[in-house]
């Protein structure tokens, strides 16, 4: 059983990677379109259609290292929510962000790619494999 798992797991991982590569080949446009649907449904109410957020309450998604920097840290925010006293570009934001672990790996990769490439942002895409990896680590950490 254990051996079977060891065999299947890398295979599944390989297939996921292939699938993710296929997604990339199928075009950023499709990812962006899917990401926008997720964004509108899950993120827009607080972060606004422009990604500008709400002064003092909900942080902006533009011009911030929280979005444009380390992808693993960004994925963790979506998985676990956010409730820390931090300043972003000198401003503090008081609302608590709800965790969104129910999003699939694909939905999370799509929406984060959308956010990192919209509102004037020009950062690299987030892949399904990257989300999967962070989620697995996150689960091991007991979150």
């Amino acid at each position: 059983m254990k051996r079977l798992f060891l065999l299947i797991f890398p295979l599944a991982f390989f297939m996921a990677t292939v699938a993710s590569a296929q997604t990339r080949r199928s075009g950023t446009e499709a990812v962006m379109a899917r990401g926008q649907i997720v964004y509108k449904s899950v993120c827009l109410a607080c972060h606004m259609a422009t990604g500008a957020g709400v002064p003092h309450l909900n942080p902006p998604l533009v011009n911030t290292t929280y979005v444009l920097g380390d992808k693993a840290a960004l994925i963790k925010i979506v998985l676990n929510g956010f409730n820390e006293d931090v300043k972003i570009n000198g401003q503090s934001y008081s609302n608590t962000m709800t965790p969104h672990p129910d999003l699939t790996d694909r939905q999370m990769a799509d929406v984060l790619t959308y956010v990192r490439k919209s509102f004037g942002n020009k950062a690299s895409a987030v892949t399904v494999a990257e989300v999967k990896k962070v989620r697995a680590r996150n689960l091991r950490a007991g979150k």
Partner: peptide, 12 residues
Amino acid sequence: MKMKKASVFLLS
């Protein structure tokens, strides 16, 4: 807390 369902709803 009731978590938001992953299924994405198109905005009407």
